[in-house]
Computed example of a mutant assay.
Amino acid sequence: MKKNFPWHIIVFLAPAVIIYSMFSALPLIDTLRLSFYTTNDAGVHTFVGMSNFHTILFDPDWSAAFWNAMWNNVKFFAVHMLLQNPIGLLLATLFSLKGLRWARSYRTLIFLPTLLSVVIIGFIWQLILSPLWGVGEKLMGFVGLENYFAPWLGQETTALITLSLISVWQYIGIPMMLIYAALLAVPEEIIEAAYAEGASSFRIFWQIKLPLILPTLGLVTILTFVANFNAFDLIYSVKGALAGPNYSTDLLGTYFYRTFFGYQAQIGSPTMGAAVATLMFLVILMGVAVYFYVVQRKLTRYEL
């Protein structure tokens, strides 16, 4: 008996495939293509192979800014991994406990900054931390710490860390809710059996709940990595395209913006910008590949 061709599958998939191809896949392919060309004053493209990448990675006029942005991105990601995800895990664990009063209100308040515009968040924190008219110093004075207040956003040594902490504060609700959902999915029968055997709450979390939510923790990690190495909006809204002071908050996103569009004395170059975007894509791709071929395989074997 001849089977009918599954036209309904194609009909339902077609809109998503078309939109994804037009606004994601095709622009990505064209960016990769453009990175192998250079443009003269007349706007004529000339194929130069790997020359643009060699210039960005090894030319002193380009490489210093690129590696500075790369190193800043690593530090930006490290702060999120060391603070955002562990605190998100702690909050999710607390909210998953039975009998916690006002748990829904707390979850809503913590998740609320995630819904706000990054421009609004940056503007608010600039007002709070301003040494001239900000309320940060006064708030610290209430607990006797006013002597430790400093213009953190204006110092090279503290600007990036300060912006990283602002980002952690805004987006901590995302890992919290993902981990919270994973904890709720842990079978209650297993927890009750462990309590019946005399296991403590800490042992139940460490030996039962945590292993069961490891896939979610891995997902949170890779989402944090991708988001941080695509970061741009918070740095741009607070410090501008120059990512001051003295490029101390420069990330790959702001470096790409100046390279592609140009800014002040720097002339934009679409081909060099495409090369920077390609390098960003390769960095993210390698990070995702490491996750899938190292972490995800271990998690799969652990589940089996």
Rank of each mutant, 00 (worst) to 15 (best):
R104H: 13
N72G: 06
L112T: 15
M22H: 06
S35T: 08
P175R: 00
L178T: 03
V118E: 00
W125Q: 01
W133I: 14
T254K: 10
E156D: 03
F47N: 04
L285P: 02
R258G: 02
I172M: 10
Y257P: 00
I267N: 15
A14M: 14
L304K: 14
L299M: 04
G49K: 08
A194S: 06
Y247A: 11
A150W: 07
G173K: 01
L178Q: 02
P151E: 02
T39A: 09
H45F: 13
W152G: 08
L165Q: 05
F229W: 10
M177N: 02
M81G: 11
D59S: 14
M50R: 07
A196R: 06
R301Q: 07
F47L: 14
K3F: 10
I191M: 05
M140T: 07
L91D: 01
I267H: 14
R33H: 12
L57M: 14
A150V: 11
W133C: 03
I19P: 00
S201F: 09
H80R: 10
K3Q: 14
T46F: 12
A103P: 02
A241M: 15
G273E: 00
A199N: 04
P86R: 14
Y171E: 00
F281C: 05
Q84S: 11
R297S: 09
F36W: 06
T31R: 11
T55Y: 07
I87T: 08
R301I: 05
E156Q: 09
V186E: 00
S24R: 13
M177Q: 04
K98M: 08
F149H: 04
V168Y: 04
A289I: 11
P113K: 10
A196Y: 07
I56G: 05
T221I: 13
N228Q: 13
Y106I: 14
S117G: 10
W102G: 06
L282C: 11
A42W: 06
S200D: 00
E189M: 07
T249R: 12
P113Q: 12
F123S: 08
Q264R: 14
A150T: 12
G134A: 07
I121L: 09
E197W: 02
F292V: 04
G262P: 01
H8I: 10
I29Q: 10
I284A: 03
T108N: 14
L219F: 04
D30M: 15
D30P: 07
S117K: 02
I19M: 10
G268Y: 11
I18K: 03
P211M: 04
D250H: 11
F229K: 00
L91V: 13
G198S: 04
Q266P: 06
K298I: 08
W133P: 03
T216C: 07
